[in-house]
């Protein structure tokens, strides 16, 4: 895995009001990789993703995406550059139909040109969404909602996809399906960062991983290696 760097966080610090929760996170994601970010509750994983996607303004540090600084840019311009986030809790537009959610995913100017084609691709990848196209998103089951959230993000034709706890609240069978999807998406040339509580599954399916704890990077390395390390298994994987 020695592609060009797609995303680079350098010494990222983020606060809510006066309360700092990310204390200098640095990480790098290369083209074609699947990178897992794991860590306990409140480690600052979501906060890091939100700051990367522009929904939070970093206190300090740099975010570089495809060679250009994006920290401080508003979120809608960041998506337009090809960085899509599937937020924690999915955040679907529950009152709108599945199809409308997907169309909105393809809203960025860059993606809108081939929106019809992308829509067909996404429906192909998630046949269940095609079947429920005119149903309200809020009426879908949990698994279907997660598929829609991922499909919606893919509609932006991203170079980099950030997934925040995609397996949250899903049955084990669906969790496996989500991670298969992650590999499938990566195989189509989209670089993926997946944040997970479910550390075992994440490490199994990722190329490399970062362990976040207390707002800092506690460990990093190839996913297999981390999975083999005793203290990581005990603390984060629960094996």
């Amino acid at each position: 895995m020695n592609g060009a760097p797609v995303l680079e966080l350098r010494d990222l610090q983020v606060a809510y009001g006066d309360q700092r929760v990310v204390w200098g996170v640095s990480l790098e994601v290369r083209d074609g990789e699947v990178v897992a970010v794991i860590g306990p509750n409140g480690a600052g994983k979501t906060t890091t993703l939100l700051a990367t996607a522009g929904l939070l303004r970093p206190l300090a540090g740099q975010v570089t995406f495809l060679g250009a600084r994006i920290d401080g840019l508003p979120p809608h311009t960041i998506v337009d550059r090809g960085l899509a986030l599937v937020p924690e809790g999915r955040r679907l537009f529950g009152a709108m139909t599945v199809r409308e959610n997907l169309l909105l995913g393809g809203y960025p100017a860059r993606a809108r040109r081939d929106r019809a084609a992308t829509l067909a691709e996404v429906m192909d990848l998630f046949p269940v969404l095609a079947a429920r196209a005119h149903q309200r998103a809020g009426t879908l089951s949990g698994g279907e909602q997660q598929m829609l959230a991922i499909g919606r993000a893919l509609m932006a034709r991203p170079r980099l996809l950030l997934l925040d706890e995609p397996s949250l609240g899903l049955a084990p069978r669906l969790v496996r399906r989500v991670f298969e999807l992650v590999r499938e998406i990566a195989a189509r040339g989209v670089t993926v960062v997946v944040v997970e509580q479910n550390a075992f599954q994440a490490l199994e399916h990722a190329d490399r991983a970062y362990v976040l704890s207390g707002g800092r990077v506690a460990a990093s390395g190839p996913a297999r290696e981390l999975l083999a390390r005793d203290e990581i298994r005990r603390t984060y994987v629960g094996l």
């Binding site: 929904l55 979120p75 809608h76 937020p87 909105l104 960025p108």
Partner: peptide, 15 residues
């Protein structure tokens, strides 16, 4: 409509 429902999610759609 998307912004009305969830402005942050809307921003993530490029709005």
């Amino acid at each position: 409509r998307a912004t009305a429902e969830d402005w942050q999610a809307a921003a993530l759609m490029g709005i």
